[in-house]
Design a protein around this nucleic acid. Sequence first.
DNA 1: TACCAGGAGAAAA
DNA 2: TTTTCTCATGGT
Length: 223
Amino acid sequence: MATEAFRPTAESLLSLYRRLLRLHGPQQWWPADTPFEVAVGAVLTQNTNWSNVERAIARLREAGALDLQTMLALPRARLAELIRPSGYFNIKADRLRELCRFLRREGGLEALAERPLETLRPALLGVRGIGPETADDILLYALDRPVFVIDVYTRRLLARHRLARGDEDYETLRRGFERALPPDVAMFRQYHALIVEHAKQACRKRPLCEQCGLARDCPRRAD
DNA sequence: TACCAGGAGAAAA
DNA sequence: TTTTCTCATGGT
């Protein structure tokens, strides 16, 4: 596992950010009505296309289960059935229930929002089924904390632009962004959303480049 | 039919 | 400690 430092300059990351922003314009993220829905979506999107997540969330909404107390009261089998379109529904039902129990113990997302990041992030990572990317999605988009979300698209883009090799561990990449950039929640959200949007647009109906994940012949590539 | 998609945890090496 | 396997649906 690669452990050496990823220490990009602020200018290199800001330059990439500005190019993505020019290409795609401001993104409206995260697509959810409430912080709780953000947290649910963060679990459901694990290794899953967002369109499948939307189906599952729509079913939860129809069932009136998009709030903490109702979801906690649902039998596991019923919850799994509701989120079936998101895939991995048995595992994700357990993960959602673990997350809901955690939120109940902590007094809900509103109470969590009062905790310092130094204890909040480890607490989230202590929930079974909540890994670093899912925790950081929740911190950034549901709890307004300046943490940078690292996903597969971020790795590919960093590698493509020679800012990283792409196989660095999650914490190395996250800390690299957070050290180089000011702790700006709105900008971190926009940056991550732009990376995902860029990858989706560039790769649509085109073969992926094995290095960066973007299409070799895509006219919208940011380089 | 085969592959991929906004991971995470357990098991095996 | 690192790598591999498992979980699963819907779109292309």
